[in-house]
Amino acid sequence: MQRTYKTGSDGIRQSRSMNDDTPVRDEPVRFDTKIAVLLREDLEPWQRLNVTAFLVSGLGTTVPEVVGEPYEDADGVGYLPMFRQPVMVFEGTKETLTAAHGKALSRALPCAVFTGDLFTTGNDHDNRAAVRAVGTGQLDLVGLAVYGARNAVDKVVKGARMHP
């Protein structure tokens, strides 16, 4: 299949099949922003997945630029849009999470929190009440999601390690 090359508006060279208008990226995309989830290292596997899902759900509703366009398959069946960039998942100690939370707040980055108390509640109303009942410095954080400029988010999760 013969390809032609064109530089897109984002400066990244794209290849296109002579028979297809769909661009294929030859170069990796570097985002100026980052989505990161930081999980406490002592969570059970099911808790890690549950906490991650809850945390990232808040970003898409309040930071619309993180969400891409809807998907569609070759048969025209539509699917929901997803984040336009990867979500990096990290883990760390309780102290690492507390420090990251403080850094995210001091930088005014959009963030979502999940506390240990939320494992004992059964609905959204009780979840919000459980967080509201505890002062910022006393939150029993088990997860944190943060979005912002790549370098700012890197500073927030400094000291954490990539989730295995």
Rank of each mutant, 00 (worst) to 15 (best):
Q2S: 14
Q2T: 13
R3W: 13
Y5G: 04
Y5S: 07
K6F: 06
D10H: 12
I12W: 08
Q14P: 00
M18I: 14
N19Q: 12
D20P: 03
D20E: 06
T22A: 12
P23I: 03
E27N: 09
R30T: 15
R30W: 14
F31D: 14
F31G: 01
K34F: 01
P45M: 07
Q47Y: 04
R48Q: 14
L49W: 09
T52N: 06
L55A: 03
V56S: 09
V56W: 00
G58L: 01
P64G: 10
V66A: 03
E69L: 14
G76M: 07
V87I: 15
V87G: 02
M88W: 08
F90I: 05
G92F: 00
T93R: 09
T93I: 06
A100M: 05
K103P: 00
K103N: 09
A108N: 15
A112D: 07
V113T: 12
V113R: 02
D117Y: 03
F119S: 04
T121C: 11
T121L: 04
T121P: 02
D126L: 10
R128I: 07
A129R: 14
A130C: 06
G137T: 06
L139N: 03
L139V: 05
V142M: 04
N151C: 05
D154K: 07
G159C: 01
R161S: 14
R161W: 05
P164C: 07
P164A: 13
P164E: 10
